[in-house]
Amino acid sequence: MSKPVLATTSLAGCFGCHMSLLDIDDRILDLIELVEFNKSPIDDIKTFTKQCDIGLIEGGCCNSENVHVLKDFRKHCNILISLGECAIMGGLPAMRNGIPIKECLREAYLTGPSVTANTEHIIPNDPELPMMLDKVYPCQEIVKIDYYLPGCPPRADLIWETLVALIKGTEINLPYEVIKFD
Protein backbone atom coordinates (compact mmCIF):
# COMPACT_ATOMS: atom_id res chain seq x y z
CA MET A 1 0.00 0.00 0.00
CA SER A 2 1.35 3.41 -0.90
CA LYS A 3 1.94 5.97 1.83
CA PRO A 4 -0.60 8.73 2.54
CA VAL A 5 0.26 11.97 0.75
CA LEU A 6 0.68 15.24 2.65
CA ALA A 7 0.71 18.78 1.24
CA THR A 8 1.30 22.02 3.15
CA THR A 9 1.28 25.73 2.38
CA SER A 10 1.62 29.06 4.05
CA LEU A 11 -0.82 31.77 2.90
CA ALA A 12 -1.02 35.01 4.86
CA GLY A 13 1.08 33.54 7.66
CA CYS A 14 4.60 33.96 8.99
CA PHE A 15 5.82 30.40 8.47
CA GLY A 16 5.76 30.02 12.24
CA CYS A 17 3.33 27.11 11.93
CA HIS A 18 5.73 25.39 9.54
CA MET A 19 8.53 26.02 12.02
CA SER A 20 6.36 24.32 14.61
CA LEU A 21 5.98 21.37 12.25
CA LEU A 22 9.77 21.13 12.12
CA ASP A 23 9.73 21.34 15.88
CA ILE A 24 8.61 17.73 16.11
CA ASP A 25 12.40 17.17 16.19
CA ASP A 26 13.62 13.68 15.39
CA ARG A 27 10.07 12.53 14.81
CA ILE A 28 10.49 14.17 11.40
CA LEU A 29 12.34 10.99 10.45
CA ASP A 30 9.30 8.96 11.49
CA LEU A 31 7.09 11.35 9.55
CA ILE A 32 8.88 10.79 6.25
CA GLU A 33 8.48 7.06 6.85
CA LEU A 34 4.76 7.59 7.45
CA VAL A 35 3.89 9.99 4.62
CA GLU A 36 4.94 11.15 1.23
CA PHE A 37 5.14 14.93 0.76
CA ASN A 38 3.64 16.55 -2.31
CA LYS A 39 3.21 20.32 -2.82
CA SER A 40 4.93 21.84 0.20
CA PRO A 41 7.74 24.21 1.19
CA ILE A 42 9.24 21.21 3.03
CA ASP A 43 10.24 19.50 -0.24
CA ASP A 44 9.81 22.56 -2.47
CA ILE A 45 7.32 20.91 -4.85
CA LYS A 46 5.54 23.93 -6.36
CA THR A 47 2.49 22.37 -7.97
CA PHE A 48 0.32 19.40 -7.13
CA THR A 49 1.33 16.28 -9.02
CA LYS A 50 -1.37 14.04 -7.57
CA GLN A 51 -4.40 13.89 -5.31
CA CYS A 52 -3.35 14.18 -1.66
CA ASP A 53 -4.81 12.79 1.52
CA ILE A 54 -4.08 15.62 3.90
CA GLY A 55 -3.50 19.34 3.36
CA LEU A 56 -2.19 21.65 6.08
CA ILE A 57 -2.97 25.34 5.61
CA GLU A 58 -1.09 28.01 7.49
CA GLY A 59 -2.39 31.58 7.32
CA GLY A 60 -5.60 33.18 6.13
CA CYS A 61 -6.28 34.82 2.76
CA CYS A 62 -5.18 38.41 2.25
CA ASN A 63 -4.86 38.44 -1.54
CA SER A 64 -6.15 36.76 -4.69
CA GLU A 65 -3.23 34.36 -4.90
CA ASN A 66 -3.98 33.02 -1.41
CA VAL A 67 -7.53 32.34 -2.56
CA HIS A 68 -6.39 30.46 -5.66
CA VAL A 69 -3.88 28.38 -3.67
CA LEU A 70 -6.44 27.60 -1.01
CA LYS A 71 -9.03 26.52 -3.58
CA ASP A 72 -6.36 24.43 -5.30
CA PHE A 73 -5.62 22.73 -1.98
CA ARG A 74 -9.29 22.04 -1.41
CA LYS A 75 -9.49 20.45 -4.83
CA HIS A 76 -6.41 18.26 -4.34
CA CYS A 77 -6.71 17.29 -0.66
CA ASN A 78 -9.24 14.91 0.79
CA ILE A 79 -8.81 16.33 4.27
CA LEU A 80 -8.01 20.01 4.76
CA ILE A 81 -6.72 21.30 8.09
CA SER A 82 -6.49 24.92 9.23
CA LEU A 83 -3.19 25.17 11.05
CA GLY A 84 -2.93 27.98 13.59
CA GLU A 85 -4.54 31.26 14.53
CA CYS A 86 -4.19 33.02 11.16
CA ALA A 87 -5.80 30.22 9.17
CA ILE A 88 -8.60 29.91 11.73
CA MET A 89 -9.30 33.55 12.57
CA GLY A 90 -7.12 35.71 10.33
CA GLY A 91 -4.59 36.38 13.08
CA LEU A 92 -2.29 39.40 13.09
CA PRO A 93 -2.82 40.22 9.39
CA ALA A 94 -6.53 40.64 10.16
CA MET A 95 -5.72 43.64 12.32
CA ARG A 96 -6.22 45.65 9.14
CA ASN A 97 -9.81 44.44 8.86
CA GLY A 98 -11.18 47.45 10.69
CA ILE A 99 -9.59 49.84 8.20
CA PRO A 100 -10.82 50.22 4.60
CA ILE A 101 -8.30 48.69 2.19
CA LYS A 102 -7.99 51.94 0.25
CA GLU A 103 -6.87 53.69 3.41
CA CYS A 104 -4.36 50.91 4.14
CA LEU A 105 -2.82 51.16 0.68
CA ARG A 106 -2.67 54.94 0.79
CA GLU A 107 -0.96 54.87 4.15
CA ALA A 108 1.49 52.16 3.10
CA TYR A 109 2.49 53.58 -0.28
CA LEU A 110 1.60 57.25 -0.39
CA THR A 111 1.13 59.10 2.88
CA GLY A 112 2.82 57.07 5.61
CA PRO A 113 5.72 58.78 7.46
CA SER A 114 8.23 56.20 6.22
CA VAL A 115 7.27 56.56 2.56
CA THR A 116 10.24 58.31 0.96
CA ALA A 117 11.25 56.35 -2.12
CA ASN A 118 7.90 56.25 -3.93
CA THR A 119 8.59 59.37 -5.97
CA GLU A 120 6.05 58.44 -8.63
CA HIS A 121 3.32 58.13 -5.99
CA ILE A 122 1.90 54.89 -7.25
CA ILE A 123 0.19 52.07 -5.46
CA PRO A 124 1.78 48.90 -6.94
CA ASN A 125 -0.35 47.83 -9.86
CA ASP A 126 1.71 45.42 -11.96
CA PRO A 127 -0.62 42.77 -13.43
CA GLU A 128 1.77 40.12 -12.11
CA LEU A 129 1.05 41.12 -8.52
CA PRO A 130 -1.77 39.41 -6.62
CA MET A 131 -4.73 41.67 -5.86
CA MET A 132 -5.36 42.60 -2.24
CA LEU A 133 -8.65 41.47 -0.73
CA ASP A 134 -10.89 43.97 1.04
CA LYS A 135 -10.07 42.22 4.30
CA VAL A 136 -8.20 39.17 5.55
CA TYR A 137 -10.43 36.09 5.44
CA PRO A 138 -10.01 33.01 7.61
CA CYS A 139 -9.85 29.87 5.46
CA GLN A 140 -13.27 28.53 6.39
CA GLU A 141 -14.86 31.66 4.92
CA ILE A 142 -13.49 30.61 1.51
CA VAL A 143 -13.55 26.79 1.43
CA LYS A 144 -14.72 23.97 3.64
CA ILE A 145 -12.18 23.14 6.35
CA ASP A 146 -12.33 19.73 8.00
CA TYR A 147 -10.22 20.25 11.14
CA TYR A 148 -8.81 23.17 13.07
CA LEU A 149 -5.57 23.10 15.05
CA PRO A 150 -5.43 26.18 17.29
CA GLY A 151 -2.34 27.98 18.51
CA CYS A 152 0.13 30.63 17.51
CA PRO A 153 1.78 28.43 16.53
CA PRO A 154 0.04 25.14 17.32
CA ARG A 155 2.33 23.04 19.52
CA ALA A 156 4.54 20.59 17.62
CA ASP A 157 2.99 17.76 19.65
CA LEU A 158 -0.46 18.80 18.55
CA ILE A 159 0.53 18.67 14.87
CA TRP A 160 2.30 15.35 15.35
CA GLU A 161 -0.53 13.72 17.29
CA THR A 162 -3.08 14.90 14.76
CA LEU A 163 -1.14 13.59 11.76
CA VAL A 164 -0.47 10.24 13.41
CA ALA A 165 -4.10 9.83 14.43
CA LEU A 166 -5.33 10.67 10.93
CA ILE A 167 -2.81 8.44 9.19
CA LYS A 168 -3.16 5.46 11.50
CA GLY A 169 -6.86 5.93 12.16
CA THR A 170 -6.27 5.85 15.91
CA GLU A 171 -7.80 8.01 18.56
CA ILE A 172 -6.01 11.30 19.08
CA ASN A 173 -4.12 11.82 22.31
CA LEU A 174 -4.75 15.38 23.40
CA PRO A 175 -3.61 16.22 26.91
CA TYR A 176 -4.73 19.64 28.15
CA GLU A 177 -1.32 21.28 27.79
CA VAL A 178 -1.08 20.44 24.09
CA ILE A 179 -3.98 22.66 23.05
CA LYS A 180 -3.14 26.33 23.39
CA PHE A 181 -4.87 29.26 21.82
CA ASP A 182 -1.90 31.62 21.87
Partner: peptide
Protein backbone atom coordinates in the same frame (compact mmCIF):
# COMPACT_ATOMS: atom_id res chain seq x y z
CA UNK B 1 -20.90 23.84 1.57
CA UNK B 2 -21.02 27.41 0.38
CA UNK B 3 -19.46 30.50 1.90
CA UNK B 4 -20.76 33.13 -0.46
CA UNK B 5 -17.22 34.44 -0.89
CA UNK B 6 -16.85 36.35 -4.14
CA UNK B 7 -13.32 37.10 -5.31
CA UNK B 8 -14.35 39.78 -7.79
CA UNK B 9 -16.21 41.71 -5.10
CA UNK B 10 -13.46 41.40 -2.57
CA UNK B 11 -10.69 42.77 -4.81
CA UNK B 12 -12.73 45.60 -6.33
CA UNK B 13 -11.68 48.28 -3.87
CA UNK B 14 -7.97 47.54 -3.89
CA UNK B 15 -7.90 47.43 -7.69
CA UNK B 16 -9.64 50.79 -7.81
CA UNK B 17 -7.10 52.23 -5.41
CA UNK B 18 -4.18 50.91 -7.45
CA UNK B 19 -5.80 51.87 -10.73
CA UNK B 20 -5.67 48.40 -12.26
Amino acid sequence: FETGFNLADSVRESCEAAGR
